[in-house]
Design a protein around this nucleic acid. Structure first.
Lengths: 229, 229
DNA sequence: AGGAAATTGTAAATAAGTGTAACAAGTCAA
DNA sequence: TTGACTTGTTACACTTATTTACAATTTCCT
């Protein structure tokens, strides 16, 4: 696993030291800068994933660095300062910062905020392409489609919901009442049971090689259905 | 222009009133909830762009709402609370929140933080991709042009917006409500749904080799559309 | 400002999905 | 093995979504 690199720019060497240790303890690679110009230099020459900038720095302040970076980059930026007046915070964020924390720095809060920024700027990739797979049958939840033996199979919305629910509970038996409640969304009335069977049949026709010898959607006599073995 | 919709959940009606006015003055559409359960209900039924949740609420607290949302959504979430101890902030962010502010709420800071979150969650698309390309279809975002098989295709502004949004979310299904909210910019009224169909059709006529067998803009019956194969 | 052309919204027509019913086939227990 | 019961199959009617065609609106040019 490659480490995430953070630039920490602050002219106070004691703070550099302590915050640096905190960040490293949390598993980050840390690069330091003592002033604004140096910070820009580092940002130009090193691949940085996130920048923490003190507002008050020699040569060029954090706000200016932030603005310059924002002209051509979407790098996550966290501003730090001793000044916590509302207009300071607003000015910082309007300069393009993603977050603004007031000194004294609280280590665990800082780490948490850094991680929040990182997961946001990484675009919540964990949400893209959620999939359910079993054997040669794959359900792509975001694309809402079923892939069976490398081929995309068109299924209706209801069929998709049913298959999804079955696959989410693979291996365990689901009663008719359960399916009715969780897929159709209403309580059992007894007469509607056949509609489940009809839908199961339509689904089997599409995703089973031999619908009368189902490999995926199995009948559990007297109870309901089970996905898989 | 499309208004951004914010959910503001707080059980204190005075705060609802004052923060609501602030947000509206900043040009946002605001939807309210008095408790956690109601907040989840709104989030399920209304297209919301960002949620501001009070931590202390009846029925279900903000942290719980936040965690539940994070199971299947990357919605930007800002937590608000009276408690500002470090462990409270850390707990909030670890529950999946993007930012955490302590009461009393400072209006301009709140607006600034909301805007920072929105520009981040919109992905700074201007930096990452000035062009969107897929196969022999390219979208030039600066020139507002569509290039299909080396040739420039004239598309209407609405068609361009739609194609852009589809391509930015290539591979995942976008519901009608989602498209209506993000491309047209207003809430679903049911009757307006087929204007999406109409626009899709016009777009297909232009960028698909065989509009009845679309390669790019695919229909997901009962749900919406998906870009890509 | 007036008219033509392009764009967008609306309504009717078409297609697809779902629920119901009637019957066939399979399963279990006496 | 038979009878009661559960499940599978098929066809059809009904509902809902999507496409198509048309009308209204807006935009652009002279």
């Amino acid at each position: 696993m490659i480490k995430t690199t953070i630039l920490f720019a602050d002219d106070d060497l004691d703070i550099q030291q302590s915050v640096g240790l905190t960040l490293e303890a949390a598993g980050f690679e840390v690069v330091f800068a003592d002033n604004g110009v140096q910070a820009l230099e580092v940002l130009r020459t090193t691949p940085i994933d996130l920048a923490i900038l003190d507002v008050i720095m020699p040569r060029m302040n954090g706000l200016q660095v932030c603005k310059i970076m924002r002209d051509n980059s979407s790098l996550p930026i966290l501003l730090v300062t001793g000044r916590g007046r509302e207009e300071d915070v607003v000015a910082g964020i309007e300069a393009g910062a993603d977050d603004y924390v007031v000194k004294p720095i609280r280590p665990r809060e800082m780490i948490a905020r850094v991680q929040a920024l990182l997961r946001r700027s990484n675009g919540y990739k964990q949400f893209s392409r959620r999939k359910l797979a079993f054997d040669s049958l794959t359900l792509d939840l975001d694309a809402q489609r079923v892939i069976f033996r490398e081929k995309s199979i068109p299924v209706s919305p209801l069929e998709f919901q049913l298959l999804k629910y079955l696959m989410q509970n693979a291996g365990i038996v689901l009663s008719k009442e359960d399916l009715l409640h969780n897929v159709w969304g209403y309580m059992s009335t007894g007469a509607d049971m056949n509609m489940i069977e009809a839908t199961v049949r339509r689904l089997r026709k599409k995703v089973e090689l031999d619908p009368s010898q189902p490999r995926y959607i199995q009948t559990v006599w007297g109870t309901g259905y089970r996905f898989g073995d």
